[in-house]
């Protein structure tokens, strides 16, 4: 089968994708207190990419992504490892959690723990994988006979 970007999908995607991405980020941030977290957030963002893919194909996915999928995976890994090792460097030990209180006016008080940074790393890795799948496996789809 071949994907033909249809107007309906295109319009749908345009409106859905930003929402999905925002939701995914929200889910990432509140994950510590509500159902959610890096995995679910990352997967939601992945679904957003899926929508982009359905609308515009692999090329569109590549265009939407700020960085290459593999770099994203690497960045996610590095962030996660960095937060893990940070504790060790600061003398507390591998994966010791630290915390930073932030007062963001319009969201309210939020504590950016090292766990959140860690979860952000998770988020990036998951998004990277989905992006990888879409751009690689999906790319062939378009050129398929």
């Amino acid at each position: 089968m071949r994907f033909r970007p249809s107007l309906l999908l295109d319009v749908g995607a345009r409106s859905m994708v930003p929402t999905l991405v925002l939701v995914s980020l929200y889910v990432l941030v509140v994950g510590h207190d509500e159902p959610g977290g890096g995995f679910i957030g990352g997967l939601l963002a992945g679904v957003a990419l899926l929508v982009v893919f359905l609308a515009g194909g692999a090329a569109q996915v590549s265009r939407v992504l700020p960085i290459d999928p593999l770099t994203m995976v690497g960045a996610g890994m590095s962030v996660a490892v960095a937060t893990s090792v940070a504790g060790m460097v600061l003398g507390a030990g591998l994966l010791d959690a630290g915390k930073l209180e932030l007062d963001l006016a319009w969201i309210g008080k939020i504590s950016v723990g090292s766990t959140l940074v860690f979860d952000a790393g998770v988020y990036l890795v998951v998004v990277g994988l989905v992006a990888m799948v879409l751009t690689r496996l999906g790319a062939r789809e378009e050129t398929a006979p």
């Binding site: 690497g74 890994m77 490892v81 090792v85 030990g93």
Partner: peptide
């Protein structure tokens, strides 16, 4: 001791991330 027992795990994990970042 604490660090010593963590490093064998921490080093390769870090290397995974860094080699990925440097994949080009």
């Amino acid at each position: 001791m604490n660090v010593l027992a963590s490093l064998p795990v921490a080093i390769p994990f870090a290397a995974v991330g860094l080699t990925l970042l440097a994949w080009r």
